[in-house]
């Protein structure tokens, strides 16, 4: 009689293999436990403790945190000074998103539709390297560029546009003593730093526009501009929205750029940093931190409905 065609288990690893085969859920559980422990306990736990902090308040006399449930800290967010910070941050985030979308579109469109072979690689690396290279070094580079004695002032002097630069800096609100201490400068740096985050999802959605559709549009007599407006742009919209999730969220939370570039007006990220650090008012810092979370949740809900997640 021939031996049964089953290899007898030898040792522990074979036995475990058999167990995993019979109970695939067990293997799944074993795979998931360590990462979920990390993200679920370390990370979600931290977020949760932050949320709890935001319902505490600070004793005005002793400066100590009072661990009792109250909505007082949230009410403080609506004080004029704090509301200003929130509105200022939102406006900046919106402006940066718009600026990034405008600059990103031609790059993404060219890379997705016209770049071939070698140029495709050039564009890919050309977008990826700035995306991944050091954030601080990029901000630092802009500090060099925007400084009063820096390259922009020099270039304006050479091209005879110094008066134009001065006129821009003399603008109310957005202007300032030099580019590096004005909102314009801050806007430029934000736009620069988050630009690749806008290009990539845009490019992904543009690459998915079928060529046959463009051909059909051309065959039906549409001009280049008409095809662009009625076919390409609507199909690229989910990518634009996906990109705007990044530019918006990243601007909302950043506290380094407003600290280094700009006129030292406070932004949400800066408020969080200073309140928990020097001021020691952790509850208000936590309440401030909840603001971008809520804004982003609402934004994500809107983006999901617009089909932006397919473009990520």
């Amino acid at each position: 009689m021939p031996a049964p065609a089953i290899i007898q288990p030898k040792g522990l690893s074979d036995r475990l293999t058999a167990l995993f085969w019979r109970r695939p859920r067990l293997l799944l559980g074993l795979l998931l436990v360590p990462p979920l422990f990390w993200l679920g306990v370390v990370y979600l736990g931290s977020l949760f403790s932050l949320l709890i902090q935001s319902f505490y308040s600070i004793d005005e006399f002793s400066g100590m945190v009072v661990p009792e449930f109250t909505l007082k800290t949230y009410a403080e967010l609506f004080r004029a000074a704090n509301l200003d910070i929130i509105i200022r941050t939102l406006l900046m985030a919106a402006a940066v998103t718009l600026g990034a979308a405008l600059i990103a579109f031609p790059i993404a469109y060219y890379a997705a539709r016209f770049a071939k072979g070698r140029w495709k690689a050039v564009f890919y690396l050309g977008i990826m390297l700035p995306l991944w290279s050091s954030y601080l070094v990029k901000v630092y580079a802009w500090k060099l560029i925007l400084a009063k004695e820096g390259i922009v002032t020099w270039a304006a002097g050479i091209t005879g546009t110094s008066s134009l630069l001065d006129a821009v800096l003399a603008l109310p609100v957005v202007g300032g003593g030099s580019l590096s201490t004005s909102y314009i400068g801050m806007f430029l740096v934000f736009t620069y730093v988050w630009l690749p985050y806008m290009i990539l999802p845009m490019q992904a959605s543009l690459e998915r526009v079928p060529t046959s559709m463009l051909e059909a549009s051309a065959d039906l007599g549409a001009t280049r501009a008409q095809t662009f407006r009625t076919v390409v742009l609507p199909l690229a919209m989910p990518g634009v929205i996906a990109g705007s999730i990044f530019t918006f969220s990243l601007t909302l939370g950043d506290y380094i750029i407003p600290q280094i570039i700009g006129n030292s007006a406070s932004f949400i990220g800066m408020a969080v940093y200073q309140l928990q650090g020097t001021a020691g008012n952790t509850p208000l810092a936590a309440a401030f931190a909840v603001v971008p979370i809520l804004i982003m949740l609402a934004y994500l809900g809107f983006a999901k409905r617009a089909g932006a997640f397919d473009a990520l």
């Binding site: 993200l39 969080v272 952790t282 982003m296």
Partner: peptide, 26 residues
Amino acid sequence: ISLLILLPIALPGVITGIALRTAFGE
């Protein structure tokens, strides 16, 4: 779970930072 994995980079860094700080402190 896929949302949970994404969360640390989807939320602004300042939130991850302050959340971890309060948790470590507590």
